[in-house]
């Protein structure tokens, strides 16, 4: 269980971006998070993954603090894959930064062997995003924060990415927080949904699609 208790986040002395935010993400659970731009969805995602410290409150994983060193059990996946990879590296080096995914998994994510020796800038956004998602699935990772990872993708590429991730997440009982504007997408993917509005987090009405 990934738990956030009474999180509050403020830049310096400005009014807080959000406060009294508590949420829970269980193992194997898919939960949506929606809200306007600037409401702090990304910041909340980064707090949950331990990229930033909340001004108040805490994030616990199975009752423990997030570890500071080593592979973190919560991984954050940002919107633009171009910024999430070192532009000077080759695809293989990026993919293998934390672990070496087995060939079957590479195939399931549609990563072609001939990409591996190419520089990352020769791949398209959709191809790169799949590399980033697979990179984050190292053994020991139990939760994913997927921050708008498919907004830049066309429908077919988006579908393929989610299908591959869904299959792997089910196998490993990964908990996934899907941050998106797209209510229909959240309906397809998630069991329940939170909505961030006016600096507070609410459990939102959710229509799960089959």
């Amino acid at each position: 269980m990934l738990e956030a208790c009474q999180l509050r986040y403020a830049f310096h002395t400005q009014p807080p971006l959000f406060e009294e935010v508590s949420l829970r993400l269980g193992a194997g659970e898919w939960v949506g998070l929606s809200g306007h731009s600037g409401a702090g969805k990304s910041t909340l995602g980064r707090l949950l993954a331990g990229y930033d410290e909340p001004t108040a409150g805490h994030v616990r994983i199975a009752g423990q603090r997030l570890p500071v060193k080593g592979l973190r059990p919560v991984q954050w996946l940002p919107q633009s894959p171009e910024l999430a990879v070192n532009p000077r590296w080759q695809v293989a080096r990026v993919l293998h930064e934390a672990w070496e995914p087995p060939e079957a998994l590479r195939h399931a994510f549609g990563i072609k062997p001939e990409w591996l020796n190419r520089p990352v800038r020769t791949l398209s956004g959709g191809e790169l995003q799949r590399i980033c998602v697979l990179r984050a699935l190292a053994p020991g990772v139990r939760y994913l924060i997927a921050d708008e990872i498919s907004t830049m993708l066309d429908p077919i590429t988006q579908l393929a990415l989610w299908q591959a991730l869904k299959a792997e997440a089910e196998k490993r009982k990964l908990g996934v927080l899907v941050i998106s504007h797209d209510a229909a997408l959240l309906g397809r993917l998630c069991q329940r949904r939170y909505h961030l509005e006016n600096a507070r987090l609410h459990a939102a009405e959710h229509h799960q699609l089959p």
């Binding site: 993954a49 331990g50 990229y51 060193k69 080593g70 592979l71 973190r72 991984q75 954050w76 940002p78 910024l83 999430a84 990879v85 070192n86 930064e97 934390a98 990179r135 984050a136 190292a138």
Partner: peptide, 22 residues
């Protein structure tokens, strides 16, 4: 401040590795 530096750290890479390879 580049995301890939943060991600590298989250993937468990040491400061030395990031210094040398990024």
């Amino acid at each position: 401040t580049a995301p890939y530096i943060d991600i590298s750290r989250a993937l468990g890479k040491s400061r030395g590795f990031i210094l040398l390879h990024h």
